[in-house]
């Protein structure tokens, strides 16, 4: 993997697809990289599908709009359906097998199927961290940014949010490590 990476993160409202993208971008800034985050926004944000396009690069990023992504993180079945064709040949797609039982259609990309909801439930007794677990897996797979950078972002953010949200910091830190360990320990077929 060279220094350039484009990823689309998609899910339904509330799964934190947009937030996962923001975490990535902040981490990219910490590492001195160029980055863009572009959301599909507006009416779609209320319960429907949401997604964001993230570019990370060692040089200037001209277009925030992605034709073909190096990777897609699909947090539900609708996202898998919508973005499967947007993965670059040779790229990969993380599928949330807890919420998607769709057959995969392509042979020129890799699929990483992770039962994100079950794992999140087991790990922290709530499904709120599917996005962060997926992000951990993505980073471990691509090594585009250091997990530590994302953790630093999380710690910084915890300082500025409500106490209730800040209390979730340990779960977030644990979830991203756990996501990475899924790939490292080959707990899923890659």
């Amino acid at each position: 993997m060279n220094g350039d990476m484009s990823v689309i993160i998609s899910g339904f409202g509330g799964q934190g697809a947009l937030f996962a993208g923001i975490l990535l971008c902040h981490a990219a800034v910490i590492e001195g990289k160029h980055t863009t985050w572009f959301p599909a926004y507006g009416a779609e944000m209320r319960g429907g599908a949401v997604n964001c396009s993230v570019n990370i690069s060692d040089s200037d990023v001209p277009s925030p709009i992605i034709d073909e992504a190096d990777a897609v993180i699909a947090l539900n079945d609708a996202s898998q359906e919508k973005f499967e064709h947007k993965v670059k040949a040779g790229g990969f797609m993380i599928i949330n097998s807890s919420l998607s039982h769709l057959k995969t259609k392509r042979t020129d990309i890799n699929y990483i199927k992770i039962p994100l909801n079950e794992l999140a439930q087991k790990l922290s007794k709530q499904p709120a961290f599917v996005n962060v677990i997926a992000l951990g897996a993505f980073l471990e797979k691509t090594k585009i940014l250091k997990i530590e950078s994302v953790k630093e972002v999380m710690k910084e953010m915890a300082k500025t949010v409500s106490a209730k949200k800040a209390a979730l910091l340990p779960n977030n830190l644990e979830s991203i490590d756990f996501g990475a360990s899924i790939i490292r320990q080959q707990m899923v077929t890659v």
Partner: peptide, 10 residues
Amino acid sequence: DGVLGQMMEP
């Protein structure tokens, strides 16, 4: 335009 308004970058 909406792209610039909604996007984030450093």
